[in-house]
Amino acid sequence: MHDLDKALADIVAIRSQIARDTAFRGLGSATLAATGLLALTTASGQALWLGEPTGRPILFFGLWIATALAAAGLIGVEMVRRSRRLHSGLADAMVWNAIEGFLPAVGAGACLALVLGRFAPDQIWMLPGLWQVLVGLGLFASARILPRAVQGAGAWYLLAGLAVLAMGSESHALSPWLMGLPFAVGQGWLAVIMHGAGGRDGDF
């Protein structure tokens, strides 16, 4: 029984190693482009109907958090669907590896929002830029299983986040466009990368 347990453990370890060394093809270009369009739509809606968002940060960030959850849901469903078709028996491990690269960035983003909202509400204007920096770092962390060109999109998010922080440092104002445009461009860039890498297969 001990030998059987060891053999099963070895098989699991081998499958995990193969999954870590295999290029992930679970991201579809159409879905990524749709999330960029979703960010642009949210920014447009806030610019038209929200007015001056600085005085209503809860509504401003609430809409963006809802947008992020919707985008994550779209990407998650597509990841599972494509992985089961393209990665077969390694699908679960491949999806987990892809998620694992972004978990620290997601956790850090949530903690930053909670800490700034609770202890430094006057500095909450920094969140859009900080979130963009974290997305860039998440892409860099995931580059080992994604096309190398993804690092370019990661650099875009990093530089865009720093630029947003610099532009907002004087007025401390919240801007739908400083939140939406970097994400729209970044997701569009990712869509082009995945399209070129074969990520269009099986898209909607």
Rank of each mutant, 00 (worst) to 15 (best):
R148W: 02
P128C: 07
L90I: 06
M126E: 08
E170I: 10
L178N: 03
G101V: 14
Q17C: 00
A141N: 11
Q123R: 12
R20E: 01
W131I: 08
G199Y: 07
D10I: 05
P182N: 13
M94S: 09
A120W: 12
A47M: 08
L27T: 10
A30L: 13
A93N: 10
R25W: 07
A173I: 11
A191G: 14
A173K: 12
L27C: 11
Y157K: 00
A30W: 10
G73I: 04
A153Q: 13
F60A: 15
M194G: 06
G198M: 01
G136W: 08
A153F: 02
L50T: 10
G168Q: 13
D92T: 10
G198Y: 00
A173E: 15
L190E: 05
A155F: 03
V115G: 03
V106G: 09
L130M: 13
I193K: 11
D10T: 09
G168S: 15
I193W: 13
G51S: 13
G26V: 04
H2V: 14
H195Q: 11
D92L: 13
G51N: 08
G117K: 10
L178R: 11
L59A: 15
A9M: 12
A197R: 03
W125G: 06
L116G: 01
G101F: 12
G28R: 05
A19R: 05
T22W: 03
L190I: 12
T22P: 04
A155Y: 02
A197D: 11
A93D: 07
W177R: 15
L127H: 02
G138I: 11
Q151I: 04
K6M: 12
S171T: 09
M94D: 01
R144N: 00
H87R: 08
G138N: 12
L86D: 02
A43L: 01
L103R: 08
M79D: 00
A13I: 05
P182Q: 12
A105W: 00
T31N: 10
D21M: 05
T35K: 10
R144I: 01
Q46G: 07
L181D: 01
G154P: 05
L181K: 00
M179H: 02
V164L: 04
A108D: 02
G36E: 15
V150Q: 06
L48Y: 12
G136E: 09
Q17F: 00
D3S: 11
L38M: 13
A47V: 04
F102G: 08
P176T: 13
C111K: 05
G168N: 14
L181A: 07
A70H: 06
A143P: 06
G129S: 08
G45M: 03
H87N: 15
L165H: 05
F24G: 00
V95R: 01
W177K: 14
A120Q: 05
I18M: 14
L50H: 07
R148A: 08
T41L: 15
W64L: 07
G196M: 02
G196I: 15
